[in-house]
Design a binder for these strands. Sequence first.
DNA 1: CCGAGGTACTTGCGATTGCAAATACCTATG
DNA 2: CATAGGTATTTGCAATCGCAAGTACCTCGG
Lengths: 169, 169
Amino acid sequence: MVMHKNSSPGDITAVFGRLVEESLPGRRGEKAWRALLQAHATLMRRLDTDLREDTGLRLADFGVLAQLAGAGGELRMTELAARTLLSRSGLTRRVARLVDEGLVRRANAAGDGRGVLVALTEAGVARLTETMPVHLQGVSKLFVERLDEQELAVLETALRKVIVDCTFG
Amino acid sequence: MVMHKNSSPGDITAVFGRLVEESLPGRRGEKAWRALLQAHATLMRRLDTDLREDTGLRLADFGVLAQLAGAGGELRMTELAARTLLSRSGLTRRVARLVDEGLVRRANAAGDGRGVLVALTEAGVARLTETMPVHLQGVSKLFVERLDEQELAVLETALRKVIVDCTFG
DNA sequence: CCGAGGTACTTGCGATTGCAAATACCTATG
DNA sequence: CATAGGTATTTGCAATCGCAAGTACCTCGG
């Protein structure tokens, strides 16, 4: 065993390991946390690149169209931002791009001059119709099919418990 | 019951609902998937803003320093990119910024002229030492403490199953 | 009906991103 | 020992991001 005046190699790991123990006794939850980060990052990257290759649509744009469809075709900006987990300013620009592509339309909210109603166009519906199966099959293959009922149930309840309320944008 | 030639309000939701059923029979896993997206997005945003307010360090920069510490103080670029879930080009620039701030140092990899070794500086170690508890207590409070042993165990095994192999960058 | 203060959304700005191409170096083959 | 092809990293570029400030509109007390 070699000891130096300063840190020996691998020492740093041990020092910070001890620091982890102080906040996470027994390093409880560390592996689950890491798994969450890694699963999310790799799944998103894969789903996004696959979707773009197969349909030309970005995952974030798909998310906007899908949320609109799930809400009956139209939503206010703020509500849409909340559902898509996008910042308000980010949504403003994303919607602008979708309007340019003709997939979405903007209208004034009836009875509130401040509000903007975003609605799917016919082209948007058509685009979503061809895109949806591609994305869902990706989610199915990479996520749903790899998990059993119990795992899905626990994931749902556990992850719901850790959703934080935080304003986006 | 009112029927129009074209879609009636709410119709779109039903149409796409049917489309979901085709790829996800019984909409299996849909709720868990949604919970994953929402938990990740809100947790990350919260942890990042909290960390920045309390220590001035971005979450992504913290991640780089923490991975280096966990690996004994230094890593090659590609390995570091993989561990931090960053793209290679993203890491190049992030490391450049960290070098500017003096938290990290670059050196040539011994025996491979192509390789770059990124290492924590003393200042980097110091910064990490003061930052680590803040971040970990955030993770503890928002994530670990809200879950029981079984939930953490299932999260870990389930999420590990859905980690995709995909090159970053 | 006026004005203060709240809400809804957009925009200026500087920072950051990833992709694809470029650079630099290594390795194996003939 | 030349060179073809692979690996490690960086950079040009155009797109995108969030924050903070700005605009527009609504609401309500007086």
